[in-house]
Design a protein around this nucleic acid. Structure first.
Lengths: 126, 126
DNA sequence: ATCATATATATGACAAAAACATATATAGAA
DNA sequence: TTCTATATATGTTTTTGTCATATATATGAT
């Protein structure tokens, strides 16, 4: 079901497709502290989403992740500006984050393996 | 245009979307030695495409990459079995492969950064 | 002989993900 | 009052990946 290749391990993060990297990043940010979407958009820069992630991607992912029970939210009407939805990670979300970390570890191995083979193919000795 | 974040560098590999990892893998395999699609499908296992890559993905990518001038092919009717299309990497393909390697290096950094932050967030000291 | 299997390429249909554009509303500053 | 920053949301399109299936050749087993 999971396909991540970690022996005896199944999880919900559905395989090694790195484009969904935004999902574990959001989970980790929400584990660090509860936040709303707009703030996450900014903070995602720290994970390599250069110009701040696309709003569509962020908000749609938030809703999807809430549906799945990995995060939960409540409206915050207090304070300046328009109402914001404050998201928190759930216990299930934390489990998923651990699963993702295993995936990502394998991802690193895959990429390093590529790089080594690349260097060999071009006769570079480091 | 490129968005890979390597300073003063533009290239054709269009940003940091790792799901296209199959592309640099095929380029590297073809740099190691000319091959046909079926063979690549098998050899891709060595890069983490667990059960051998999907034929649709492989063959469609081959045609696309040939259109782009990164690889070129000729029919091989000799030898056992049905006719096969033998692919070789071109000079442009080799350039692209170097570009990809830079991308992948950044990918590794991004993932390692994630892992470190993950460990910090859960108070793990290694 | 013919049947199953391995080799080999290809395409159609669909689903998922991301990119790009736009709509909306609030509040504060110029 | 107009502009900007904050904040959430959705519609459309393109790209990418998955799954299924069609095709053809050769070889080994029965």
């Amino acid at each position: 079901m999971c396909g991540c290749g970690n022996k005896g391990h199944t999880c919900e993060c559905q395989g090694p497709r790195m484009e969904r990297f935004i999902q574990p990043c959001m989970l980790l940010l929400l584990h660090e502290k509860p936040a709303h979407g707009y703030e996450l958009m900014e903070r995602l820069k720290e994970f390599g989403f250069e110009d701040g992630a696309d709003p569509g991607l962020v908000y749609r992912n938030l809703r999807k992740m809430e549906e799945s029970g990995w995060i939960e939210s409540e409206w915050e009407t207090e304070g300046a500006g328009p109402a914001k939805r404050l998201y928190k990670i759930t216990a299930e979300g934390i489990d998923l984050l651990h699963d993702w970390s295993l995936h990502i570890e394998r991802g690193i191995e895959r990429l390093r393996n590529f790089q080594e083979r690349y260097r060999q193919s071009f006769g570079k000795d480091n």
